[in-house]
């Protein structure tokens, strides 16, 4: 079809009858999905629809109650953790760390971390690498974490609400950084409820509702089929 999905033979992420329950109520209920390589995919749904749970299962931080989830054909283990670059919703970097220490930390943990690329992006933003994280603004901290995560040469990037809580200019920076940094044989899964900001960046989207996928489509197929933006479609599907 085009240059961005040539190596699409093994799906990057597969879920078969994937179910996750905390106690008796399932958070994800018999989810089936296949995400090929070379795509930017939106995981869209209201709060509590299971977005973060699905991402944590793919990252190997949770185990399925039943069914399976596969990253590049493998159940999550230490090998797939090397293939997955995960940006959690909440930071795990200590506010007392210096910027340069976050670089050391990523270089130690991840063999695929491209330090030169990260340093280059940080210097273009004017981030001084000797300062401690607590002195950075919220927007700058979000950008820094995204730079760290996108500077890995991973196969699957899991970005949980990467643009929540930052101003529009920081959002634009974050979206441009995602577009210019993912490799054509990798896939980016972005969870968000800020759909209008993000829909042009996506190849396709998944609507999650009550732990199940209610719609999966490319953005332009949905626009041509329903005659509305994905943002408007979301409001329609999730109308209270």
């Amino acid at each position: 079809m085009n240059a961005y999905n040539e190596s699409a033979s093994i799906p990057i992420l597969t879920a078969n009858m994937l179910t996750k329950s905390y106690g008796s109520a399932p958070v994800l209920n018999c989810v089936n999905l296949t995400l090929p390589a070379g795509r930017i995919i939106g995981l869209l749904g209201p709060n509590g629809s299971g977005k973060t749970t699905l991402i944590k299962l793919a990252a190997g931080l949770l185990t399925p109650t039943s069914g399976e989830i596969l990253v590049c054909g493998r159940a999550p283990d230490e090998v797939t953790r090397g293939l997955v670059s995960y940006l959690p919703e909440r930071t795990y970097l200590s506010p007392s760390m210096r910027v340069s220490e976050t670089l050391d930390y990523f270089a130690d943990f991840y063999a695929d971390f491209d330090r030169v690329r990260a340093v280059d992006m940080m210097s273009r933003l004017g981030i001084d690498d000797s300062v401690r994280l607590r002195t950075l603004s919220k927007g700058t901290k979000e950008k820094l974490q995204l730079i760290l995560v996108m500077s890995r040469n991973a196969r699957l990037y899991l970005l949980d609400e990467p643009i929540g809580g930052v101003d529009p200019a920081a959002r634009e920076y974050i979206l441009s950084t995602i577009i210019s940094n993912y490799a054509s044989d990798s896939t980016v899964l972005i969870s968000t409820h800020l759909i209008s900001d993000i829909e042009a960046v996506l190849d396709e989207f998944l609507f999650l509702r009550n732990g199940g996928i209610v719609m999966q489509s490319t953005v332009d197929d949905a626009r041509e089929r329903y005659g509305m933006s994905v943002d408007a479609l979301f409001r329609e599907v999730y109308r209270c």
Partner: peptide
Amino acid sequence: ASDARVNPNT
């Protein structure tokens, strides 16, 4: 794509 902030495939 990066300039327009749209998907490269699009």
